[in-house]
């Protein structure tokens, strides 16, 4: 697949990055290759470049997120862009009005890139129709979180050398997870075998139609897995609404040494964060030698630099 990556910046045929579904395999490989080079920049003492000098990047977060927002902020600053953060407290009813009003206000300030997170699926698409700059989806409801899938792919590729034919087991709250949706699309596109593991209440409708094998028994689902990708389970979904209790959930779906032993001997563990230790993952594993969790954070900055670079350079 790397043979397909001989296109240049001008060939990245997208104005926005709204979801994985609009990307082709060559687009993804191209972004990952570019991100590899950004990893090197991030490890130097002098980290600042002038690739996006003079460009304005606005991070517009309707939903609080410390790590994603700071990752985009650092990525933009390392490229030399002027980065501004806007956290929009969401009033309960008039969210959409705020969204489009804010969009038109920001648009009038002529930014070059808008990085947007919103609690409603499709909200970033709606906003992208109303502004003239490039828009990066930093997470919209339960729909997509494309840079998370890209950073996960980069992390896996650096350790396994490939993605095709790897068995990747995604475990936890698949139903409400934009991370799972983006990863399922991306991993399938690059030839991985994707499994999802969750209690049936936390699986989306017709999940088998998304190109995954479905397991409700974690040990069966982890059998021979090369990558174990854990998802965060929000506490409010456990008071009997989707799962009966924390202890029952951890008993059946929490990642501990015993369950992990069913995976391949060299299986690696990932988590998009923030983690609930003792809910979906045992601390010993999260901090252990097979955990890639901290590296995911580093790759996040690199991947976001790559995305900001192709969008910021190609279309302004």
């Amino acid at each position: 697949m790397t043979a397909l990556t001989n296109h240049t910046l001008d060939d990245f045929p997208h104005r926005h990055l709204l979801g994985i579904e609009e990307l082709s395999a060559p687009d993804i490989i191209y972004l990952l290759d570019l991100a590899e080079r950004q990893v090197e920049i991030g490890r130097k003492v002098e980290k600042k470049t002038n690739i996006l000098r003079g460009r304005t990047q606005i991070n517009l977060f309707f939903e609080a997120s410390t790590r994603t927002q700071s990752s985009f902020e650092i990525a933009g600053k390392r490229l030399g862009a002027d980065v501004m953060n806007m956290s929009v407290a969401s009033s309960s009813v008039k969210k959409g009005e705020t969204l489009l009003d804010t969009a038109s206000t920001l648009n009038a300030m002529n930014p070059d890139i808008l990085v947007v997170r919103h609690q409603s699926a499709g909200a970033v698409h709606l906003l992208a129709q109303k502004v003239e700059c490039s828009v990066v989806n930093a997470g919209d409801g339960a729909h997509q979180h494309p840079t998370q899938a890209l950073l996960d792919a980069l992390t896996i590729r650096r350790h396994k050398g490939r993605l095709d034919n790897l068995i990747v087991a995604i475990c936890g709250d698949i139903r409400h997870s934009r991370v799972a949706r983006s990863n399922i699309l991306l991993l399938n596109l690059l030839g991985a075998r994707v499994r999802v593991i969750a209690p049936s209440t936390l699986l989306p409708a017709a999940v088998e139609r998304l190109g995954v094998e479905v397991f409700t028994d974690m040990r069966e689902g982890l059998e021979d897995a090369d990558i174990v990708m854990m998802l965060r389970l929000q506490h409010e979904r456990m008071g009997g609404s989707y799962a009966p209790s924390v202890r029952e959930y951890f008993h059946f779906f929490g990642l501990d040494e015993d369950k992990l032993s069913y995976a391949a001997d060299d299986a690696l563990v990932m988590h998009p964060g923030p983690m609930n230790r003792g809910v979906e993952i045992d601390s010993a594993i999260a901090d252990g030698p097979r955990s890639l969790i901290r590296e995911q954070v580093e790759m996040g900055v690199a991947v976001r630099m790559a995305v900001l670079q192709v969008l910021g350079q190609a279309h302004t």
């Binding site: 339960a142 729909h143 997509q144 989306p204 409708a205 139609r209």
Partner: peptide, 15 residues
């Protein structure tokens, strides 16, 4: 409508 389309769009379905 609940189904593959709602799951792909990340929207909550109605069976």
């Amino acid at each position: 409508n609940e189904g593959e389309t709602s799951s792909r769009l990340g929207l909550i379905g109605i069976p």
